[in-house]
Simulated assay, not measured.
Amino acid sequence: MTTDSAPLRVAVIIGSTREGRIGDAVGRWFMERARHRSELDLAVLDLADFDFPVHYPGRATDQMTEFTEEIARAEAFVVVTPEYNRSFPASLKQAIDFAYDEWQTKPVAFVSYGHGSAGLYAVEQLRSVFTELHTVTLRNGVALDILQQSLEEHPGDTGRDRSVGLMLDQLGWWGWALREARAVRPYVS
Rank of each mutant, 00 (worst) to 15 (best):
I96F: 01
I96H: 01
A99F: 09
Y100P: 00
E102S: 04
W103C: 03
W103I: 08
W103G: 01
W103Q: 01
Q104I: 03
T105W: 15
T105Y: 15
K106A: 10
A109L: 04
A109G: 14
F110D: 08
V111Y: 08
V111R: 05
S112W: 12
S112G: 11
Y113W: 07
Y113R: 08
Y113S: 10
G114Y: 03
G114P: 15
G114M: 15
H115P: 06
S117R: 10
A118D: 12
A118W: 03
G119D: 09
G119R: 06
L120W: 03
L120D: 03
Y121A: 14
A122W: 01
V123C: 01
V123P: 02
E124W: 15
Q125E: 13
L126S: 08
R127S: 04
R127I: 11
S128T: 14
F130S: 06
T131K: 15
T131A: 07
T131V: 03
E132F: 04
E132G: 15
E132K: 07
H134S: 15
H134P: 13
T135M: 05
T135V: 12
V136N: 02
V136M: 08
V136Q: 05
L138P: 10
N140M: 08
N140K: 14
N140T: 13
G141K: 00
V142T: 07
V142K: 01
L144V: 00
D145H: 01
I146F: 03
I146W: 00
L147E: 15
L147N: 10
Q149A: 13
L151S: 04
G156Y: 00
G159E: 09
G159R: 14
G159F: 09
R160C: 01
R160N: 05
D161I: 08
R162A: 10
G165K: 13
G165A: 15
G165Y: 06
L166R: 05
M167N: 06
Q170V: 11
Q170G: 02
Q170S: 08
Q170M: 11
L171W: 08
L171Q: 01
G172R: 04
G172S: 15
W174D: 07
